[in-house]
Design a protein around this nucleic acid. Structure first.
Lengths: 124, 124
DNA sequence: CAGAATCCGTTTAGATACTG
DNA sequence: CAGTATCTAAACGGATTCTG
């Protein structure tokens, strides 16, 4: 019923020691989701992300690129632009990501209630 | 092939707007995992977490408690102590959490390779 | 044992302005 | 269009010391 805990959770839980790279990031999962249906431009990505500042979006995209989850392609032509797209690796991450989001939707009310009760019970 | 993106990803992806509460946290997922097999004490939790400082562990536990994912019980007696345990809600989160960790284990080598290639390709 | 208090360095992210 | 540069505020996390 209560076996001893592993001495080092960092070795056991994930090879990364923590959540997968980029998963404990505020923006990265949202960016990945935005790329589900195809490549997107820099400015296209900003809109659904509450007009996140260019600086923040740039850093997020660079990190995702570094980890092989997205690609960055410069598209020359009459209207030159840049397109970001999921790699197969990045796409494979969408599944566990969706599972987490589904959990949240399912338990949203419950989470809110817990918070409210906690606030109500906490001392002034 | 390329439908327009939702204007507000925060409304659509998760009710929370982001990942579920506490999921984008460095320690929370590890703590939840440590509680899988039963209640644990404060000091018991520190060991597998690389001797995380009391301050950090306390804040993590408070946040998890606030969101209804764990309970805190003071156990009086000859050796008084405190026990933290998963709520049913907290336990239900273990499943999507495990899915994410499984993904990481599965693609760990690939992630490492991408990083190395990126470092090799980046300018001095 | 289970923390609280304090200090401090790092990281994160927003606002704003500017550039090839 | 796709960023970069600079500044700033807040959050995160570690180290240390102290307490009911």
């Amino acid at each position: 019923m209560r076996p001893p805990l592993a001495r080092d959770m960092f070795d056991e839980l994930c090879p990364s020691g923590l959540l997968p790279l980029r998963f404990a990031d505020k923006w990265a999962p949202l960016v990945l989701t935005c790329l589900t249906d195809g490549p997107r431009r820099f400015s296209e990505l900003r809109v659904p992300l509450h007009r996140v500042t260019p600086r923040t979006l740039t850093r997020t995209l660079r990190a995702l690129q570094r980890d092989g989850l997205i690609t960055r392609a410069e598209c020359p032509g009459r209207t030159p632009h840049v397109e970001y797209a999921l790699t197969p690796l990045g796409r494979s991450l969408l599944e566990p990501l969706a599972a987490v989001c589904a959990w949240t939707r399912e338990h949203w009310e419950e989470l809110l209630r817990a918070r409210e009760e906690h606030i109500a019970a906490s001392p002034a």
